[in-house]
């Protein structure tokens, strides 16, 4: 397909442009001085200053970081042993447990949201930041398990045998061999679940209690009340933050 090279290349570059143009446009116009945001009237940082002074936004950001942090810790504490268990268990049981663990990956987000909402209603648990954390940990657990297992499967089982042979107890084998070799995957899983949690809107939308506003909830209500240069600036900040996290995770995975 030699002659197709040029055609394919232009098409692919256009495809990439399609993915990046909208984001780029937002970032450029976040610096626009005009409130009528579609026409360019010079560079200004005023919208970023407005964001900085927005008290509600700061609270929402704090909430989001708290939720992402705690749900990520829950996910790792549950996910690492579960991934190890799934690698050790006999295949008949694995065939049974695997789909259960992976189920949240295929459930539509809206459904996950309402299902958790109904659970909390039936259990009469008041909606709060805690319910948001539980929700995020629930849909992020399989994400972490998939990443950690992929790495575990690549580990040479002889390494652990070698450690036992050299006098290590199972716990020492885990601490000194498995954990260090698993570290890149743990970091990758951590960053991914943290990002997904930080970005989640739908599940949060259903299970967040009054006052438990996270950043995406805040963004949503801002968008609902109309286009404004302040949202452009906020979007730019979020995009930069995501890219920073991606860069970080790539950096760690390369090592």
């Amino acid at each position: 397909m030699r002659n197709q090279g040029g055609w394919l290349r232009s098409f692919s570059v256009l495809g990439l442009a399609f993915l990046y143009l909208p984001i780029a446009v937002l970032m450029v116009f976040s610096l626009n001085a005009s409130r009528l945001s579609a026409t360019w009237q010079g560079v200004s940082w005023q919208w970023y200053e407005m964001l900085w002074r927005d008290e509600a936004l700061r609270t929402a950001t704090g909430n989001s970081l708290l939720v992402a942090g705690i749900s990520t810790v829950i996910v790792l504490l549950l996910g690492v042993p579960a991934a190890m268990g799934l690698e050790r268990i006999r295949s008949r049981w694995r065939g049974f447990l695997e789909p259960i663990f992976l189920l949240p990956l295929v459930i539509p987000e809206v459904m996950m949201g309402v299902a958790l909402l109904m659970l909390f209603v039936v259990l009469q648990m008041p909606l709060s930041l805690a319910t948001v954390m539980i929700g995020h940990a629930a849909f992020n657990l399989p994400v972490a398990i998939v990443i950690i297992r992929a790495r575990l499967q690549k580990l040479d089982p002889r390494l652990l045998e070698a450690a036992y042979d050299l006098g290590a107890t199972p716990w020492q084998g885990f601490r000194r061999i498995t954990l260090p070799l698993l570290f890149p995957a743990l970091l990758g899983a951590m960053l991914l679940t943290f990002t997904i949690s930080l970005d989640d809107f739908i599940v949060t939308f259903f299970v967040a209690g009054p006052g438990a506003t996270t950043l995406p909830l805040k963004v949503y209500s801002m968008i609902k009340s109309g286009v404004s240069p302040e949202i452009n600036a906020l979007s730019a900040v979020l995009v930069m933050a995501s890219m920073g996290l991606v860069g970080l995770s790539l950096l760690f995975q390369r090592r």
């Binding site: 993915l19 990046y20 984001i23 937002l26 990002t195 930080l198 970005d199 809107f201 995406p216 963004v219 949503y220 968008i223 979007s235 979020l238 995009v239 995501s242 890219m243 996290l245 991606v246």
Partner: peptide
């Protein structure tokens, strides 16, 4: 882009 906030 997949890592970027869906709302944004």
């Amino acid at each position: 882009p997949f890592w970027t906030n869906f709302l944004v």
